[in-house]
Nucleic acid binder design. Structure first.
Lengths: 212, 212
DNA sequence: ATTATATGAGTGAGTACTCACTCATATAAT
DNA sequence: ATTATATGAGTGAGTACTCACTCATATAAT
């Protein structure tokens, strides 16, 4: 993800202080939710006085929006280049692995945005346009091509891509949900391999695997 | 789901008033989140005085817990009976359809519980034990059997079942997320059919479908 | 049948406390 | 010396929760 925080597209430079406050805010909002968090806590976490927060952000809500606003999906271009010419299996695995890492590295912020998207339509709309639609589009195009080439079944690419994303997401959610819990965890590599296997050899017309 | 609300296993009868307050609470909590909701709003929504709430619930938190506590997954036994002897395809579709309806009918409460599970470990633990584990176990057993019989690939049943659930969940989340949005919706029937198709003919060793 | 007494669900004004935001003052940077 | 930045005590609107009181209904007394 590419974090970059000029409040309203203007002054795009974020000072060190501003960054510190934003990082503290992610922590506190994640832990208590936006409404449950207090500006006093955020200030303490950031190591500044409460008043300082309001020098950088007009309102508490503005802090939240500054976090959610510039949440842009990092390009997959590099990854895609690296696996150019490889089998679908390799390509899809590379994509999933890359996205999963992205999610892992930003899990708090992502969870926060998802949660608060329920209550703030600005965040919801931002997220749908900047993240969901773009990310979905990428996979959709990949799948559309293979359908066109007659390699995949005639399924709606939107449904297929979402199914794949769904399989991946649930493992993140599950893991995150169980944090510090006694229940079983899985090895990421194994999970990705299995997901791709289920996905591909269900959608591929010419099977070359799992034929017994 | 089976809602049944005696606070602590004792007096299991909930008066009409209590029910009214609880229903109002689901609405207000759903819309504003637990912290963002006020007891005044809940009272207004329920059509009672603020004081009345505290005659039935000791604290605001107790209202939330009374909602999340008795959230028990309705048995699938009936559905399973109806499709006894049918193909996997039919059985799995019946299960998914049934669960999907359950979710649809309780979407507000479910979203609420998911959200607040982040902030209240009591809810999180309750949910994991009463819902997640039981629901997952059911599918896992189904899949384990087929693996044992040599009908499915040697995949960890926990991974397989979660993958299936993931595919289903994302469509609910997506739909819920986009509520009143311009983007495309899908037909439930079609989605379920596609999900099962992807799942089954990816996991089944003896293919009989999609062979071109 | 009529009247007196008791009950307890329901009320809403009041209380103690919280929290986002302000502003006069101090400190640091130029 | 002037300007920019930071501070944190202070403010007032709001909030969870309390409690003295009401009043419709049930029960007992006549």
């Amino acid at each position: 993800m590419n974090r970059d925080t000029g409040k309203h597209a203007k002054e795009n430079i974020t000072s060190k202080r501003e960054q510190e406050i934003m990082e503290a805010a992610v922590k506190v909002f994640s832990k208590k939710g936006f409404s449950g968090a207090t500006t006093r806590e955020i200030a303490a976490e950031a190591g500044v006085a409460e008043g300082t927060i309001f020098r950088y952000f007009k309102t508490k809500k503005d802090i939240l929006f500054s976090l959610a606003g510039p949440f842009i999906v990092e390009s997959l271009a590099n990854v895609m280049d690296e696996v150019k010419g490889e089998t679908d299996e390799v390509v899809l695995k590379a994509i999933l692995k890359n996205r999963l890492n992205l999610v892992k590295n930003n899990i708090d912020l992502i969870r926060l945005i998802f949660t608060e998207a329920q209550f703030h339509h600005e965040i919801r709309e931002q997220f749908i346009e900047n993240v969901a639609m773009k990310a979905a589009g990428m996979l959709e195009r990949f799948i559309s091509e293979r359908i066109w080439e007659g390699e995949y079944k005639e399924i709606k690419p939107q449904i297929a891509s979402r199914a794949l994303v769904g399989m991946a997401i649930i493992f993140v959610m599950w893991k995150d949900f169980l944090m510090g819990n006694k229940y079983i965890q899985f090895n990421d590599e194994e999970v990705i391999d299995n997901i791709i296997d289920i996905f591909l050899y269900g959608i591929k017309k010419n099977r070359m695997k799992g034929e017994l």
